[in-house]
């Protein structure tokens, strides 16, 4: 735990999802309320339903390994789920988070190109993101108009106009992308790749549900 520290300090050493989210929260992003645990406490300061995730820097794609359990509705269910995960992931820590539902799933990321340096990506999220390739890239840092063009250049452009009850506030999304650009610029000596996936967008609320970082030196 690295509470009360600067961005550089938080991202120093091994960075867990919890650490990265703390850094993102410090920077002004919205992330779910969360708690790192080894055992289920008598009471948790988060309302049910909750999400339980394995928190281990060695595990990059945790949902593919059964390391994410969503929609846990009660203390008892949480207890049972945690016992199961502890067996599956011995020696790991665990993260409980409030569950955020509804909205449009996006992927937002940063990656480094050997010729062009850091770039930002935004696209429609979900497990088929790579398949559809519905994403836009720009070099960092971006300007406001770049953020607008990125949104318009993907299917997200449909959601800022509203589509079948799903709506993302354009201005909030523009500000979010500019903030990602600012964050990445501030960590430009640290980041090799960063995934924020999924990012849940509903109206003006844009919440980073999961975030991963690979540093320049190849570590997480």
């Amino acid at each position: 735990m690295k509470a009360g520290k600067s961005l550089g300090e938080i991202l120093h050493g091994e960075v867990t999802e919890f650490d990265l989210k703390m850094a993102l929260r410090e920077y002004g992003f919205r992330v779910p309320r969360g708690l790192l645990i080894d055992a289920v406490p008598a009471s948790i300061p988060i309302n049910f339903p909750v999400v339980l995730k394995v928190s281990d820097p060695r595990i990059l794609h945790k949902s593919e390994l059964g390391g994410v359990s969503i929609g846990i509705g009660s203390h008892e269910a949480l207890d049972a789920e945690l016992s199961r995960m502890r067996k599956a992931f011995p020696g790991s820590h665990f993260l409980i988070e409030e569950m955020v539902t509804g909205g449009v799933e996006m992927i937002v990321g940063v990656s480094r190109n050997r010729d062009f340096g850091l770039s930002i990506m935004v696209g429609l999220g979900g497990i088929f993101t790579e398949l559809y390739g519905d994403a836009a890239f720009r070099l960092l840092p971006i300007e406001r108009q770049d953020a607008i063009d990125m949104i318009e250049g993907t299917t997200l452009g449909k959601f800022v106009e509203g589509f079948r009850g799903k709506f993302i506030d354009r201005e909030s999304l523009v500000k979010f992308l500019l903030k990602v650009s600012g964050f990445a610029e501030e960590c430009r000596d640290i980041i090799d790749q960063m995934d924020m996936n999924p990012v849940m967008a509903s109206g003006k609320e844009i919440t980073i549900l999961d975030a991963k970082l690979i540093k320049i030196n190849g570590t997480t």
Partner: peptide, 13 residues
């Protein structure tokens, strides 16, 4: 190894 990195082909960038 991350989704963003996998999608960030030279041409897309």
């Amino acid at each position: 190894s991350l989704h963003t990195g996998a999608m960030a082909s030279d041409d897309r960038v």
